[in-house]
Simulated assay, not measured.
Amino acid sequence: MTTELNIAFSPCPNDTFVFHAWAHGLVPDAPQLSVTYADIDITNTLAADGAGPEVLKISYAALPWVLDRYRLLPCGGALGRGCGPLLLTAGGPGSVQRASDLAGRRIAVPSERSTAYLLFRLWAAQQVSGGIGEIVVMPFDEIMPAVRDGRIDAGLVIHEARFTYPSYGLGLLTDLGSWWESDTGLPIPLGAIIARRDLDAEAVSGWIRSSLQYAWDHPTDSREYVLSHAQELSPEVAKSHIDLYVNDFSMNLGEDGYAAITALLGRAAAEGLVPAIDPALLG
């Protein structure tokens, strides 16, 4: 058994909460973790290039490009209800006021291989005739200032932006998670944990579940670690973030979780947004 395992996940509160115990040697018999903290767009690219560590957090939207080398783990990720991406606008004269106003406009997204982007494209195919103008990829923390300052017409935001966008003077055009849930009846697949296929997936999943259970059993132990990696967030926002994104699906995807992943990737493949996958590879 390896004595050290390389892992990459975001510095967002949900990831640091889930992996705190393992990263700090509190999971019995688990190898030491060497952690790289990186935005989801970076980990998506690392996984697709084959240059990533043994275990990564990526977007479910990036799975079709990596399933030949990585296996989806049934735990540790972000999938749920009421937690989808938001499409924000600044308001004011000439701004985007309704879906039809998006035709020909510049839209900022956090990644073209993100669930947020897939949901946006699937929604826009139904709601926006004439097509979007330009898609601009930005780090997610730069999107709201760009919309506020008028450099972008609308922005697709994820993570803690759900809680902080009013402080930028922005308005909600649509909640894409709510649209997905009403359209499919399924939860929203956001972030996946994947492991190289030469690893013992059952063992890695067990260590992740132990780490998560420790976090739930000792909710204050991870606070300093979580806040040190989310320095712009108040403790209250960080807790809200964890409460929203860390849930029963984080412990076990279950039937609804796998159905949601299959539905998202199937719809996206039908629109030509991702390669088609063999659903058997998700198991």
Rank of each mutant, 00 (worst) to 15 (best):
I7N: 03
I7S: 08
A8I: 11
F9L: 08
N14A: 14
D15T: 12
T16E: 09
F17D: 00
F19D: 04
W22Y: 07
H24N: 15
V27N: 00
A30S: 08
P31V: 03
S34W: 11
V35W: 07
D39Q: 14
I40G: 06
I40W: 06
D41S: 14
I42V: 14
T45Y: 04
L46V: 05
A51Y: 01
L56G: 02
L56E: 09
I58D: 02
A61N: 08
A62P: 01
A62Q: 15
P64T: 08
P64H: 10
W65G: 12
W65Y: 14
V66I: 15
D68F: 08
D68Q: 14
R69G: 13
Y70T: 02
R71D: 14
R71E: 15
R71K: 15
R71H: 15
L73R: 06
P74M: 03
G77L: 01
G80L: 01
G82P: 04
C83T: 10
G84Y: 10
L87D: 05
T89M: 07
T89Q: 13
T89P: 01
S95L: 04
S95D: 12
V96N: 04
Q97I: 12
R98I: 11
R98N: 13
R98S: 14
S100T: 13
L102S: 02
R105V: 04
S114M: 11
S114T: 08
T115K: 07
T115I: 07
T115L: 06
Y117G: 00
L119K: 04
L119Q: 04
A124L: 01
Q127K: 15
S129A: 15
I135V: 15
M138F: 14
F140N: 10
E142N: 14
P145Q: 09
V147L: 07
G150F: 13
G150H: 10
I152S: 09
G155A: 10
V157M: 04
I158Y: 03
H159M: 12
T164R: 13
T164Y: 07
P166S: 09
Y168T: 09
G169H: 05
L170R: 05
L173K: 09
T174P: 00
T174E: 10
D175T: 07
E181N: 03
S182C: 11
T184V: 05
G185E: 11
I188N: 13
P189Q: 01
I193H: 01
R196I: 05
D198I: 10
L199S: 02
L199F: 05
D200T: 00
A203F: 12
V204Y: 03
W207K: 03
L212C: 05
Q213C: 06
D217M: 03
D221Q: 12
S222T: 12
S222L: 07
Y225C: 00
Q231F: 08
Q231C: 06
Q231T: 14
E236H: 12
V237I: 15
V237R: 00
A238F: 11
A238D: 08
K239D: 13
K239S: 14
S240D: 11
I242N: 07
I242Y: 01
D243F: 04
D243K: 10
D243E: 15
V246E: 01
D248C: 04
F249L: 06
S250D: 03
M251F: 12
L253R: 06
A259S: 12
I261R: 02
A263I: 02
L264E: 04
L265S: 02
R267K: 15
A268V: 07
A270E: 14
A270H: 12
A270M: 08
E271W: 05
L273T: 07
V274E: 01
P275F: 04
I277D: 07
P279F: 06
L282R: 06
G283Q: 15
